[in-house]
Design a protein around this nucleic acid. Structure first.
Lengths: 106, 106
DNA sequence: TACATTTGGACATATTTTGTCAAGAATAAA
DNA sequence: TTTATTCTTGACAAAATATGTCCAAATGTA
């Protein structure tokens, strides 16, 4: 089953399992410890660069972390919409369509 | 079947079906005509306020337009991710979970 | 040509995000 | 308790994005 923990919670769990202080992980990531604290509590957005580094540091599955990250992003965008389920369906269809027609990124 | 046209394309179609010049619709929406031109070509984001007004002006289904709008937003966020399908699944599960536990918006 | 409509680009302003700091709160150790 | 360590909070400026506006260029139509 998929992990429904937020990206922040997942980062915190990885860090605590490794018994690494927040301050030290922040230093490895080259960000302020207050920023990392906020990321772990989902008060600030992480970004893909940070996630990639974290995957390396803790030898975690990068793809799974990215799924957690982006699903959070999507969730925040549409959580208050009653038609959220249809929105996701249509988004998926649009992306699939895009791929079959091989649109280039301008 | 769902309408996979972008929100911009849908707005343009509604306007053209009503044979209303862009300039006039822009005036009704109280935005610059160049802004509307960009929205119709998906060069600028629409917003929910504009969409609600358009639904009223053309007596269109507001919910369907919102689905088009938000699915575009979601698509742009994750279109380059190989795991897009899983991301959407997880996002849906997160939103559903949130609703069963009735989290309040702070 | 003349006229109406749409598009493109430049620019200023506004809003949002990000980075940084320092002090306060919480936790653990002595 | 006192001290040390860790984490959180809030304030602030700087950077990055988004938005609003103007107007000339392009396109289309009579």
């Amino acid at each position: 089953m998929q992990n429904l923990d937020s990206i922040g919670t997942q980062i915190r769990k990885l860090r605590e399992e490794a018994e690494m202080p927040l301050r030290k992980l922040a230093a490895l990531l080259d960000i302020d410890q207050s920023t990392l604290s906020k990321i772990e509590r989902d008060e600030r957005r992480a970004n893909t660069q940070i996630i990639e580094q974290i995957a390396k540091i803790f030898k975690a599955d990068k793809e799974k972390l990215l799924v957690a990250f982006y699903s959070d992003v999507v969730m925040y965008e549409i959580q208050d919409e009653s038609s959220f389920s249809e929105i996701l369906q249509v988004a998926e269809a649009k992306i699939e369509y895009q791929r079959t027609t091989k649109k280039k990124t301008k």
